[in-house]
Simulated scan of single mutants.
Amino acid sequence: MTTTAAAGTAGAPGPLPRGRAEQQDFRSRVRGCLLGGAIGDALGAGIEFDSLEAIRAAHGPAGVTDYVPAYGRRGAITDDTQMTLFTVEGLIRAHVRRDTGAWHPPADVHRAHLRWAATQEGWGPDERVRDAGWLAGQEWLYARRAPGGACLSGLADHRMGTLAAPKNPGSKGCGAVMRSAPFGLLADWAPGLVLQLADECAAQTHGHPTGRLSAAAFAVIVHGVVRGEPLEAAALRALELLAARPGHEETTAALRGALAAVRQGPPSAERLQSLGEGWVAEEALAMGLYCALVAEDVRHGLLLAVNHGGDSDSTGSICGNLLGAVHGETALPPGWVAELEGRGTILELADDFAMELTQGPALHGPPGAASSAAWLARYPRA
């Protein structure tokens, strides 16, 4: 990581200094962000490649109002949620490895994404993941769910893309945006460091400045709302930070377009589609943000986010990440939570992330110190 935190543990943030109520609120927002993103992903999965006209013809004038079958079941998630979960796992392992004096979160996230890429090649866990931690052993994650080409090609070898030498420098698809909410959950980090880390990790698969900076801006917006900022204020903070970054213009224009659309009249699918289709990074970010800003409640925002003729699962996922981070897990529609594929794994990972950030020193210390063997088996330092 090319920030001061990269030089070693001296620049690394410590555990969140929170009381019990604050820790419970943080855990609720982490759970809400990850579950909400997965619900939005699953709502859009069955209509991702349909036009708005086809969606309305098949499901009525309001479009989809509930899960529809995708990949053989209702509530199925896609590669958007798969990659988000591996991003979370990479961030946990980065914090665990910090005790060894190794502090380079982009490398840990990259290794986690390589573990995701391995799930796209096989039928299930095998000897290759024996020492890879618990997430890579979850058989349900080995389903191939229309993964993005840039994500697959960017992770096809072990060379890590960097800002100086990014993978797929011409790609600005939304595949880096849809997995970047977890960077915003690093609530003890400064916003500028969140932006930097998300930018560096996006370069591992999507090297175009818009593909990278849209992912980074999304992380900063999530970060703001997790820390209690209003959603619009968090978006304005992202705009402020983007202004200093070369190549920010498309991302900045898309964010400003989303903020302006809020004031142009009642929300509708047609107004949403004026922001784009969501296949490219800045459009997906703008559409997800717009739906979260105008949402009357979580259900309303998510249904608006998926009922359009574009990348419905990604815009739904982005909107769900935001609304879940704003309101916490208890605001999510319980019927959708109950039927969501992988709910147990998502909750387990969310709780582990919150525990690592708030209780890390009690779980592990420097090599040779008293540590939880169970925790280090789940998140190996190797």
Rank of each mutant, 00 (worst) to 15 (best):
2 T>Y: 04
5 A>D: 10
10 A>S: 11
11 G>C: 01
15 P>N: 02
16 L>R: 05
22 E>K: 04
22 E>H: 07
24 Q>H: 14
31 R>K: 13
39 I>H: 03
40 G>N: 10
41 D>W: 04
48 E>N: 09
52 L>T: 14
54 A>N: 10
58 A>P: 03
59 H>P: 08
61 P>W: 09
68 V>N: 05
73 R>M: 15
82 Q>D: 15
87 T>P: 00
89 E>I: 00
90 G>R: 00
92 I>A: 00
93 R>H: 00
94 A>T: 03
94 A>N: 02
95 H>A: 12
105 P>D: 03
109 V>H: 00
120 Q>V: 07
130 R>F: 00
132 A>T: 04
135 L>Q: 09
137 G>A: 11
138 Q>P: 02
143 A>E: 15
143 A>Y: 08
151 C>F: 11
155 L>W: 13
157 D>G: 12
162 T>Q: 08
163 L>F: 05
166 P>F: 10
169 P>W: 09
181 A>T: 01
183 F>G: 00
191 P>N: 01
191 P>D: 01
195 L>I: 01
204 Q>P: 04
215 A>D: 03
221 I>W: 01
222 V>H: 00
224 G>P: 03
227 R>C: 04
236 L>R: 15
241 L>M: 02
243 A>Y: 03
263 R>A: 15
263 R>Y: 06
264 Q>I: 03
270 E>Y: 05
272 L>T: 14
277 E>K: 15
278 G>C: 10
280 V>W: 10
281 A>Y: 09
282 E>S: 15
282 E>D: 14
290 Y>D: 12
296 E>N: 07
299 R>W: 07
304 L>K: 10
305 A>W: 12
305 A>Y: 11
310 G>K: 14
314 S>T: 15
314 S>F: 13
320 G>D: 10
322 L>H: 01
325 A>R: 06
334 P>V: 13
337 V>M: 11
343 R>S: 06
344 G>P: 11
361 P>R: 05
363 L>M: 07
373 A>N: 00
378 R>F: 02
380 P>G: 02
